[in-house]
Computed example of a mutant assay.
Amino acid sequence: MGICTSTGVIRDFAGPYFVSEDNMAFGKPAKYWKLDPAQVYASGPNAWDTAVHDASEEYKHRMHNLCCDNCHSHVALALNLMRYNNSTTWNMVTLCFLCLLYGKYVSVGAFVKTWLPFVLLLGIILTVSLVFNLR
């Protein structure tokens, strides 16, 4: 998960002490959620970019933790700093669910790449389960 600056440059907490620019850790984005800059509560003409910059600078000094302090947390900090939607309670779980609900796939291929492995794995599990239950 990453967050764009107002010029469209994606910032992504890609690893320990590293925030990438336009080179996401897991490849090109498959899904996006377009946020409304008018929802930024912080003052100043560059409040969005300032919050993204400050969150990125903070995460350049953090160890990446897959479960607790990751790219989702980086984006949440940026949204908290800008008080997006007048909120300072953004977190990785909230972002995950809201991206699932409001995110849009960049293409049909991105949708397939996202869901095909899950569907195949589920099919294998169900097939194996049925075979063993029929015995």
Rank of each mutant, 00 (worst) to 15 (best):
L81D: 02
V40M: 04
N23H: 10
I10S: 11
G44P: 01
L35F: 11
A14W: 02
G109S: 08
K113V: 02
N65A: 13
L79Q: 06
P29R: 10
V131P: 03
V40I: 12
V119A: 10
V19L: 01
A38E: 07
T88N: 11
M82R: 05
A30D: 13
R11C: 11
D12N: 08
T114E: 05
M82G: 09
T5R: 13
F26P: 01
T7N: 05
G2F: 04
G27T: 06
T7Y: 01
N133F: 11
T127H: 06
W33N: 10
E58D: 15
V119K: 00
P37K: 05
R135E: 15
M24Q: 12
L122T: 08
L101M: 12
T94V: 14
Y41M: 14
L95G: 14
L116T: 01
L98C: 09
N23D: 12
S6F: 07
N133L: 14
L35S: 09
L126D: 01
A42Y: 04
A42Q: 09
P29S: 11
A55V: 07
D22H: 06
F13Y: 08
T89P: 00
K34H: 13
A25P: 00
C99P: 00
L101Q: 14
V108I: 05
M82T: 11
S87T: 02
A51C: 02
W115T: 10
P117T: 03
N65H: 14
M92P: 00
D54F: 09
N65P: 08
E21G: 06
Y59R: 10
F13I: 03
C96K: 14
L130K: 08
T127Y: 12
E21K: 13
R62A: 10
K60A: 14
V112C: 02
D54L: 15
E21F: 06
L130V: 09
K113T: 05
A14H: 05
L66H: 10
E57W: 10
L95W: 04
S6C: 05
T5A: 09
L77V: 06
L66N: 13
M63W: 12
Y17D: 07
D12C: 05
V131Q: 11
P37N: 10
